[in-house]
Amino acid sequence: MSESQIRKRPDHILGNVLVEADKAVLNVINTRGKSAISRRNIQQETKLPMNIVAKCVKKLTDLLLIKEIKHGRIYHYIATENSPSNTVTGGGCYPDDKKEFINQVKDICLKIVKELKVTTADGVYNVFIKEHKLTKVELSRQQISEILGVMVLENLIIEVKSTGYGEYRSVPVGDVCYRCHEGNVNHGSDVGAMSSIPCGVCPRIRECTPDGLVSPSACVYFTKWLEF
């Protein structure tokens, strides 16, 4: 049900049903707008006893004036006509197999970026959603942007600011855009000098001394590494 379709109850009807405490609680919840509020915070703001707050919240929920949202392990409350903000819900919803789904989306995004060479988050979103409808799950512009951010952190793509010159000419100067690595970057996997030798990733490096229990001459990782 969209926000515009929810009909507000006339205040004079509510006035007969709600007592002062209910009104105070409802007022606090309404003033919060899209950010939900917990019972403890309601109690702090209204200065009502906790059991009264609990009763009021239950009554208002039954009257469909407020709705509850589980945020972590605590229930938060928000006016029925409002939809919770991303900070409350944790962003858009993903299917249960979130990891697998995101990996699929990442692969598709990578293909799009490769194809477009230089593009903005909106550019990827347009191809992804509008032109091809590549997944059954509906993804928002914000979610695509977040996934692109993760791809940048994984070094799959790079985030640059458009210079408006050459291949950036389609993007306004200064806008954030994404492109693939042009060189031979192996996504940071085997490029490191240190990570390619046993000592680089050794969990016992701090205990390793020339004559100690852990030593380069008695090192099992070295022995394994030098087995041909």
């Binding site: 952190l153 940071g188 996997s189 490191g192 000098a193």
Partner: peptide
């Protein structure tokens, strides 16, 4: 940064690599 990140990737895994890059950048 690339050198340090590659150590983190190999020693702690891809998720740690993402976290480290976020904090590093």
């Amino acid at each position: 940064a690339q050198e340090v990140e590659s150590i983190v990737l190999k020693k702690y895994g891809r998720e740690a690599y993402r976290i480290f890059r976020l904090l590093s950048e």
